[in-house]
């Protein structure tokens, strides 16, 4: 067994449980902090949202702290993904979606109809459930976002691509074939490419919507290790169905149930001594 490093992880599909090593298990090492003491990247206050007549989110209030990983857990349909889709305004594509309350990114109102949606989306990086690289080269995938927003020289683009691929722990694997189609990468590599693509735009927050649900265990480990590294530079919000993943990777955890925020706090506290009965039932697998 070679030394596990996220850059050199081979991408064989079969992986036994023992081989997978998680580099960091935050739940063991991080001290519990109070989210209120930290700077807020995203501020959510009395935030409600509807699809038609269906109320998907009910008066949520919390902050997503800066430079921390915040996990959103809860059973299917509890509104986790809806919240993420509001932060980068993907819900603009849903005709019946509307929202009320306060949703701010570093003080910018995310709900305003006057807001420059395009600029907001640049400031918010999104990684989707299934890897969705463009049918272009690896290089063009990463350069896609920056080229939209800025006029770049060749060398500037080269630098940016390398930095971003490095951030996503993918550079060593692909540096010799940057012109190859992104679709030639394995699923896990594709997802890291999508992370590099998001990071290249210089986002203020990275949203991850179940980024590992379509990946095998080994690729999942690679992504989780990557998150631990990214945490130094980025605020991350991750939606996950996988309780262990939330426990391993995040600093803070929010538990949503039927559109309501049941509990929000330091991950360690949520998973060891939750205050609410529903939270306990959920994380011990009694429902959901």
């Amino acid at each position: 067994m070679m030394e596990p490093s996220e850059a050199a992880l081979p991408e064989e599909p079969v992986a036994t449980h023992e081989e997978i090593t998680f580099k960091t298990d935050l739940s063991q090492t991080r001290p519990s902090e109070d989210p209120q003491d930290l700077d807020a990247a995203v501020r959510v206050e009395r935030f409600s949202s509807w699809y038609g007549d269906f109320q998907a989110l009910q008066a949520l209030s919390f902050v997503i702290p800066e430079n921390r990983i915040t996990a959103f857990i809860g059973p299917s349909g509890c509104g986790k993904s809806t919240l993420l889709r509001w932060i980068n305004r993907m819900n603009d594509l849903v005709p019946s979606a509307r929202a009320e309350g306060v949703l701010e990114l570093h003080g910018t109102d995310l709900l305003s109809s006057q807001a420059d949606v395009v600029d907001l989306r640049r400031r918010v990086g999104m990684v989707f459930q299934k890897p969705n690289p463009f049918p272009k080269s690896i290089y063009d995938n990463v350069a896609f976002g920056p080229r939209l927003h800025r006029k770049l020289s060749r060398s500037e683009t080269d630098d940016l691509v390398e930095q971003s691929l490095n951030d996503a722990a993918l550079w060593d694997e692909v540096k010799d074939r940057l012109k190859a189609s992104a679709l030639s990468l394995s699923g896990g590599q594709q997802q890291r490419l999508c992370i590099a693509r998001a990071v290249a735009c210089g986002p203020e927050i990275l949203l991850m919507d179940e980024p590992c649900s379509a990946l095998d265990p080994k690729s999942t480990a690679a992504i989780e290790n990557l998150m631990a590294t990214l945490r130094q530079h980025y605020t991350i919000a991750i939606v996950t169905h996988n309780m262990q993943q939330a426990a391993r990777t995040s600093d803070f955890t929010a538990f949503l149930y039927q559109g309501e925020l049941i509990e929000f706090g330091a991950t360690q506290q949520i998973f060891t001594k939750p205050e609410q009965r529903e939270t306990e039932n959920y994380i011990t697998g009694r429902f959901g």
């Binding site: 980068n88 993907m90 594509l93 395009v118 600029d119 907001l120 989306r121 640049r122 400031r123 990086g125 999104m126 989707f128 299934k130 969705n132 690289p133 463009f134 049918p135 896609f144 976002g145 939209l148 927003h149 999508c194 693509r197 998001a198 290249a200 735009c201």
Partner: peptide, 27 residues
């Protein structure tokens, strides 16, 4: 053309026409 590609383009801050001209139409 799968919607996931459109969402990816919008997600990095492409305008609608940038999404169309650089992603959907070429595909």
């Amino acid at each position: 053309v799968p919607d996931s590609l459109r969402h990816a383009a919008l997600g990095v801050g492409a305008t609608r026409w940038q999404m169309v001209s650089k992603v959907s139409l070429p595909a």
